[in-house]
C-alpha cells in the first residue's frame, strides 16, 4: 500500500530540479502570482504537488511552443484560466440540464 500524500512540500531547488526549470524562471512565476507557495522568502517557499505539476507544464510550454521564458507566467495563467472556465462551463451545463427537458 502506497500512501498518496498531498501534503508533501517541495523547496524551490527541488521544484527546479524535478521540473527542469531555471531557478530565476520559477522565481518570476511566483513573483507574478501564478504560483503561491507558502513561506515568505524564496528559501522558505514550499510548493505542493499540484504546483510542481504546473512548474513542469512551464518547462513543456517552453520546449513545445518555443515560448520565451519571460512569456511563460502569462501562458500558465491563461491555461489555468482556460481550465477554470472549462470546469465552470461543465458545471453550469450540468446544472442547466437538470432544468431542461431532454
Amino acid at each position: 500500500m502506497i500512501e498518496a500524500s498531498v501534503t508533501v512540500k517541495f523547496s524551490l531547488d527541488e521544484v527546479c530540479e524535478i521540473a527542469e526549470l531555471p531557478t530565476e524562471v520559477l522565481i518570476t512565476i511566483v513573483e507574478e502570482g501564478v504560483l503561491e507557495p507558502s513561506g515568505e522568502s524564496p528559501e522558505e517557499w514550499r510548493f505542493d504537488s499540484t504546483m510542481l505539476s504546473i512548474a513542469k507544464r512551464a518547462a513543456r510550454l517552453h520546449r513545445d511552443f518555443e515560448i520565451e521564458w519571460t512569456g511563460i507566467p502569462f501562458y500558465l495563467d491563461m491555461i489555468e484560466e482556460l481550465e477554470k472556465l472549462r470546469a465552470e462551463n461543465r458545471t453550469l451545463r450540468q446544472r442547466l440540464n437538470r432544468f431542461l427537458l431532454k
Binding site: 498531498v6 504537488s49 510542481l52
Partner: peptide, 18 residues
C-alpha cells in the same frame, strides 16, 4: 499495478505525486 491510498478531501484537478 499499484494499490494507493488516496487521502480524504482530494479535489478536482489536484495532482498527487508518487
Amino acid at each position: 499495478t499499484l494499490n494507493v491510498k488516496i487521502p480524504k478531501g482530494v479535489s478536482e484537478g489536484e495532482r498527487i505525486r508518487l
